[in-house]
Nucleic acid binder design. Sequence first.
DNA 1: TATTGTTATACTCTATAACTATA
DNA 2: TATAGTTATAGAGTATAACAATA
Lengths: 157, 157
Amino acid sequence: MPSSLVLDRLLLLSDLLQRDMSRAFDGGPLTTARVHLLWVVHHAGPQTQQSLATALDVTPRNVTGLVDALVESGHVVRAPHPTDRRAVLVTLTGLGADTMRRMAVDHAQLDADLVADLTDDERSIVAGALDRITARLQSLMAAAAAEEGTSVEAERP
Amino acid sequence: MPSSLVLDRLLLLSDLLQRDMSRAFDGGPLTTARVHLLWVVHHAGPQTQQSLATALDVTPRNVTGLVDALVESGHVVRAPHPTDRRAVLVTLTGLGADTMRRMAVDHAQLDADLVADLTDDERSIVAGALDRITARLQSLMAAAAAEEGTSVEAERP
DNA sequence: TATTGTTATACTCTATAACTATA
DNA sequence: TATAGTTATAGAGTATAACAATA
């Protein structure tokens, strides 16, 4: 009995998805935040912690902790940056790469399972609608951030 | 460039929604977990912490901490249970009720904003599709839980 | 004996601020 | 002077286990 058209449905589904996906690595050293980091490295390749902090939208300090744990569990290593001796390149180990390959398969399987009940038409309409909803939300957030920016400016004459 | 049909889109959207909605009470005493609890009380009425623990799918100990913070901030009170002297009824204060009414308005506004670009046909297709995706996921999770249950049973002959 | 809530303890994610080493 | 990463500190969410009061 959602009182809203899509918001309540999206929130419920988000919650369930998070629970379901974290069930896969429950009990082990991996967590949602660590897997998120691995996912970025898997897709975008070895990169600095700064770059990861931007991609994950968290502080550099936070990345330090996540990488520490992933080094401890053997999923990544800190490789020296070829030209900048301040920086490190967070790089997947064999274990890390294997883990991500397995997760990608599970991910694709889950995606296919989720839309199993939908017709082709419905699938393309839903995909397009989700893209437009996302774009809409991003534009709303950008507008809110800009407004907050000006009001912060106003507070610093 | 989502590699999956709906999963990547849903995960991205979830993340943005969470960030956007938590922006509203950023800096104040409220947090996502506390607002979630308030939401349940607002909709289902005064109830015990056990009941909240079940509704939120967290441990009773966790509820104690959330209620402590919400009592401190003046959003709820612990009222005595009429018949069970062990239990308390978590109840909204005037501030708590006002806060939730305002949030419900914002919630409805956001919902309307999100689907502003969609046609009526698209809206109903998306709503129906999300319901079926959710049902599908719930059934997958129930099956996984059942299987885990049997294997746990198997380990205890 | 079972249930409600709490105290005790611990781990994870997250943030800010100050600091070191390097650019 | 600015940037990359770390140490120090803190708050929040979450969990398990042991315990009190009450059913």
